[in-house]
């Protein structure tokens, strides 16, 4: 028989309270213990729902390796399962998007025989699509962690959108700082300039978190990317360089001609705009 403890992992979204789903609220109310990595306003909201809320923010410390912080978070989340309790772990945004300890907690709970379920939340990427007016279906969309993108040989498509996450960590070799190294940002721009014009627009995006904030939407040419000040909330968005090219070889293999195709409204829009959507 499976042990009695149970883990629910939820996302609280980006806007404090406003993005909290009904299912997340039910789980947060019903849980025996709640652990969270959220902003101050959301923490208040969680405390209204449950009086056994514990913030995991104190697992972070300046100069401490982030992976040590995450390991501690996972230990704290999993400990009450052995007492047969229902634990709810709440992370800002989507708990499965750029959240190592959330996935790790689910994996470990399941391997120990506990029931563990992850519930989606509104991610920063969801806010980006809304705030920048970008539909990932229009040109396709590729998403990479910025440092991981820079350090590895990637085959990506410059005719699709490109999103690079957490550029603040560029140059953070020890995974213990929260500040980017301008030299790494320059090299990233040089690497990107192999596939994009040097004046290609790069949008530095930050979703609005605090109620009085507006989203940060700052466009810079690729060659001046190193001048930008990043925060932990910064994301880079590069529109496609040009629309995709129809494959004559694939049309031939399919036994059809271009005139046989009925382009969708989104494809006509894409062709009309040319690029940099």
């Amino acid at each position: 028989m499976a042990p009695g403890g149970r883990l629910s992992v939820v996302g609280t979204g980006i806007r404090p309270g406003g993005h909290l789903s009904r299912e997340a609220q039910h789980l947060l109310q019903a849980a025996d213990r709640v652990f969270c990595v959220v902003d101050g306003l959301t923490l208040e909201r969680l405390r209204e729902l449950n009086d056994r809320v514990e913030s995991l923010q104190d697992s972070y410390a300046r100069g401490r390796r982030r992976d040590d912080s995450y390991a501690e978070m996972v230990r704290r989340i999993l400990a009450p399962l052995a007492e047969g309790l229902h634990v709810c772990a709440a992370f800002y945004g989507h708990p499965g998007v750029f959240v190592w300890p959330a996935h790790e907690a689910v994996r470990r709970a399941r391997s120990a025989g506990y029931r563990a379920v992850m519930y989606p939340g509104i991610s920063a990427e969801d806010c980006l699509f809304a705030d920048l007016g970008v539909d990932p279906a229009l040109n396709g969309c590729q998403s990479f962690e910025a440092t991981d993108f820079l350090l590895h040989e990637r085959r990506f498509d410059a005719t699709a959108a490109l999103i690079l996450w957490q550029p603040i960590t560029l140059g953070d070799l020890g995974r213990d700082a929260f500040e980017s190294d301008p030299r790494w940002v320059r090299v990233l721009a040089e690497v990107l300039a192999e596939d994009y014009p040097r004046d290609h627009p790069v949008t530095v995006y930050e979703a609005a978190v605090f109620p009085l904030d507006e989203a940060r939407i700052e466009q810079v040419p690729l060659e001046r990317l190193h001048e930008v000040r990043f925060t932990q909330a910064s994301t880079l968005y590069l529109p496609p360089r040009a629309p995709p090219v129809l494959s004559a070889e694939r049309l031939r293999r399919l036994g059809i001609a271009e005139s046989d195709l009925t382009p969708g409204a989104y494809q006509l829009h894409r062709q009309a705009r040319g690029s940099t959507e």
């Binding site: 923490l43 913030s55 923010q57 995450y70 800002y92 750029f98 959330a102 929260f178």
Partner: peptide, 17 residues
């Protein structure tokens, strides 16, 4: 404002990867 409104833990770390 956050401090005055009684909202603690406002200086949060956002990176979780």
């Amino acid at each position: 404002l956050a401090r005055e409104a009684g909202i603690d833990d406002n200086k949060m770390q956002l990176i979780i990867l």
